[in-house]
Design a protein around this nucleic acid. Structure first.
Lengths: 267, 267
DNA sequence: CGAGCCGTTGATAGTCATCAAAATGAGTGG
DNA sequence: CCACTCATTTTGATGACTATCAACGGCTCG
């Protein structure tokens, strides 16, 4: 196979990392109906108060989901990369009280949620992939919550950078140089800070020798150090088991005994 | 039906709110294997570094999932009520990098994730219910993230109280009086504050006449006011469509045009 | 070339964390 | 039933981290 030229093939490729697709699975997926749209930065993809079930496949560019309070304060809840299938939760289960918006310009393919639901019903492998994606969404969301709730500004921004480097690289090691697809204000909205403070925090990370580069071009000068102050552990991203020799097993919290299958620490 | 006496019947009842179970669905669900355990407050239910896929059905008492940083700082990511099925993400898709822990004493039924996976495969309705539950988990998680990232201490605590009141009540209106099943330190861990500050915040809410009662007994004195400062909107909890006459449609953000099915604001 | 977004810098004020210790309350064992 | 212990709640004093307000330079773009 390879190179059917379908616009949604990148989406398929990413999903295939999450389950073992058969040729039939692949074919059926590529048969999905969709509409491709070019979108500029800032375009709203879907809104919290809208019921229309629609899934968005991000072909090029970057997008996010966010929640906006009456005060105007915004919390970005997830960031999406080219190849991502966005709004699974909202599309497949009903509105999700989140807004979807492009961070940069790019293009998307709109897929009717009903079609995707059908496909996932007929193709258990597709279903499994979607389920796992949804799991990753949740996992990432809770990691972000810990980020926003329990880390200081430096660690928050460092963590975001680590995550981006890792996700941009796919399954390999983290990229050392890349372009952050967000303005400092958007970084602020993702980390629960203000744009001004993000600016100063980036400067501190630079002065500390952890990153280099100006503007949105980020070069990671000291991955170890950056990951350390961020306490970054890529497990939550659910990437395949490539670089699995993690630095786990260390100083977790040894409050309870050893772990094993059968919950022997339950009473 | 009604009153088979099975310990996991409360779980079933809650799931039935999320999809239309047939009698066969119900029966098969109740046939699931499980082991019941009494657990004391603080008992660890599952750990982030553990692979054993196991789902926990919370029969009595309250539980939470949390993430702990090396510094010892803890972020509680979700709170679970009697009748909840916990760790769907971790159990069905692999470890979730989250710890599960009892907030109070209580009892749980352990269900092998594989069994649940099987059931959900054979019973699309069960699957739908589980999918919707997972959606609610995500939805709640992102609401909490907005809470922790973008609201001040008063609003955060008020929001937590509103959510608890609403969830305790099931589908009706919010309870006016109930017992918070968490210590102030746990509230702090859920809201990204410190225990000391939670204490002072609760006092402010009392002085403001929004809540009454001492200790964990909470009486909501002014639901309107409390929900207002918290910007609480129960939609994200995915409760059935009872009190749907929301206070929506008001001052959202009118940045983009009208919404309708076909994404006409895309370009 | 003006408009506007974005990044940067400075000065100041608040919110919330931290540290320490006393007060309250529940559970235990003699 | 009471002394005792331990967890939890409460209070006070201090300081750090981050927000807020304001202004300016650089850059892109129509």
């Amino acid at each position: 196979m390879g190179g059917t030229g379908s616009p949604i093939e990148p989406i398929l490729l990413k999903l295939e990392n999450l389950a073992e697709f058969s040729d039939a699975d692949r074919e059926d997926f590529l048969k999905l109906d969709y509409v491709v749209r070019r979108v500029s930065a800032g375009t709203t993809l879907f809104r919290e108060d809208e019921k229309s079930p629609q899934c968005v496949a991000l072909l090029t560019g970057f997008a996010c989901r966010h929640r906006t309070l009456k005060s105007g304060a915004r919390q970005i809840v997830s960031v999406h990369f080219p190849g991502d299938l966005i709004n699974l939760q909202g599309g497949l289960a009903g509105s999700c009280a989140l807004n979807g918006q492009m961070l940069t310009s790019g293009s998307v393919a709109l897929i009717a949620a009903a079609d995707l639901r059908c496909l996932s019903f007929e193709r258990p492998v597709v279903q499994k992939a979607i389920w796992r994606q949804s799991w990753i969404d949740f996992s990432t969301c809770s990691e972000w919550m810990a980020n926003v709730g329990r880390r200081d500004a430096c660690a928050r921004v460092a963590h975001l950078i680590c995550e981006f480097a890792t996700r941009l690289q796919g399954n390999g090691r983290a990229k050392m140089t890349f372009e952050l697809p967000m303005t400092q204000e958007q970084i602020a909205d993702a980390t629960g800070l203000t744009a001004v403070h993000v600016n100063r925090t980036l400067q501190r990370l630079r002065r500390a020798g952890l990153i280099r580069g100006s503007g949105r071009a980020i070069e990671i000068a000291d991955w170890q150090g950056l990951a350390a102050i961020a306490e970054f552990d890529r497990t939550y991203l659910g990437l395949s088991a490539h670089g699995r020799a993690h630095e786990r097993e260390r100083g977790r919290n040894p409050r309870v005994g050893v772990q094993n299958q059968n919950n022997q620490y339950l009473n």
